[in-house]
Design a binder for these strands. Structure first.
Lengths: 156, 156
DNA sequence: TATTGTTATACTCTATAACTATA
DNA sequence: TATAGTTATAGAGTATAACAATA
């Protein structure tokens, strides 16, 4: 079988089909491509709640960690404190979350969801779970489990 | 075993250990975390050649696809044309790559590496391969192969 | 002296509209 | 009419320095 013909470049020095086989051996390239693909879908679906993927992550951390501080959110999501302030202010103005004084650290502020925020996140997390199934529809349940396990081995 | 105690939150409404277990079930979160981790390392190492990870990807595409056009690079790397122009100009000024008229499309410009660019990328791709082993040192060869295969199923 | 939250600000990345020259 | 490359520019994301209040 003339594999060379299938791979062949068109005329003199022009490229027919782009060969990305080298980049595909690099983890960073693959992780970035998947990240872009999934986050684009995530962005589309979360637009219904007027939440960016990062907004969703922040609120989700507050759901599962009532009283969490800005600093802790920054640590968990690899954000910088100055870049979190505005996002929290906006979500406070939207009445999605509330700041309460921290029980045993006067410098810190504990974050909590309002009832409105709770109801929004109940729906948003359902949407995220549905989207998750969609984005991984090409994988079996076992493959998805393996994928998450391997990814977590790399950063956790 | 009192698992509840290990999971327990400190005092009234404050958070001891942040619980990220829900986010860890989401592919987008995991892919982004790995992407950030690997790209940070990539950025550090490629600084020796004064190349960003994207610069490296662009030059690598030219290495393996001499005569490739801007448009084709944009498609392969999910970049927008206006954001590629400046990068190519800079690399042309650094004498890493050259623009030549496209053999059969007067609108297009074929990109080629200069000798300087060839020599740089020979070293840079070696660095990338080494870095790759480092970043995936927690995985066996079989696990890495599986990981890349699963990631590619999601975007290719 | 160190840390939390904050402001101000700069820098980079990403996105959109519009132009030109070729097809 | 459509496409390749380009310009200008706007917007989002990411970065550092410095300050007040508290530890």
């Amino acid at each position: 079988m003339p594999v060379v013909l299938a791979m062949r470049k068109t005329p003199a020095g022009s490229v027919d089909q782009v060969d990305t086989s080298y980049l595909e051996t690099l983890l960073g390239y693959n992780a970035r491509r998947v990240s872009l693909t999934v986050i684009e879908l995530f962005t589309q679906r979360m637009a219904a709640y007027d939440l960016s993927p990062v907004d969703f992550s922040i609120l989700s951390l507050v759901v599962h960690n009532p009283g969490i501080t800005s600093r802790q959110i920054c640590g968990a999501l690899a954000l910088l404190p100055p870049n979190l302030v505005g996002k929290i202010s906006i979500m406070e103005k939207r009445n999605l979350l509330a700041r309460r004084s921290h029980p045993d650290d006067g410098r810190a502020i504990g974050l909590h969801l309002t009832d409105v925020g709770e109801r929004l996140m109940l729906k948003a997390e359902k949407t995220a779970t549905a989207l998750e199934h969609e984005a991984t529809s090409r994988l079996s349940a076992a493959e998805k489990k393996t994928l998450l396990k391997l990814l977590q081995k790399l950063y956790l």
